[in-house]
Amino acid sequence: MSEFIQFLTDRYDLVLKLLWEHSYISLIAVAGGFLIAVPLGILLTRTEKINTYVIGFVNILQTIPSLALLGLMIPLLGIGAVPAIVALFLYSLLPMLRNTYTGIREVDPALIEAARGMGMTSFQILWKIELPMAISIIMGGFRTATIYTISWATLAAVIGGGGLGYLVFTGLGLANDNMMITGALATAMLATIADLLTRNIQKMCTPKGLKIKRAN
């Protein structure tokens, strides 16, 4: 235990730097994933025909081993944080895409018909009915993706992008438990903070009407 604290006090500048790298790599990846996956998921509910192909493609992305994916990227993107962010972005798509698609599709059709009867345009229906009803499912996917991305972001270290994976892999190579534990604990801490933040975002996003219903 004292050795562990010794390690932290000796190397806190390194740990902080890696923590920062880890945070921005995951944040950019997951934010990018969100910006693509949510609109794409909505689009898929409108064009059911292509949905098998798109989801199939995203599924396959998920099975590409990270070292192989990063290896493919070196000729295109070089080494460092950029290829790591792109790889994580690709991996983050699946949970958000799937949840957006299911969330929107599962909105009660009666509600949509009622809205249409009231003369709402399809954009209004999306914005005022479908998205608010599906938001907690979509955000559930976002939270899964965030946690996954933070835990997978250790892969950045294998392509020279830094991040907490550096402590994990170096600790493994040297059998230095203090290093490995620091890496793992810091990643877990980031995940917890991210989970608290996303939980609050989810609450903020939940429409008032639904919240009041819950309070009953």
Partner: peptide, 15 residues
């Protein structure tokens, strides 16, 4: 439970 599962998720594979 959520925090525990998140933490498990972040344990590196080899560890």
């Amino acid at each position: 439970i959520q925090t525990t599962i998140n933490a498990i998720q972040t344990i590196p594979t080899i560890s």
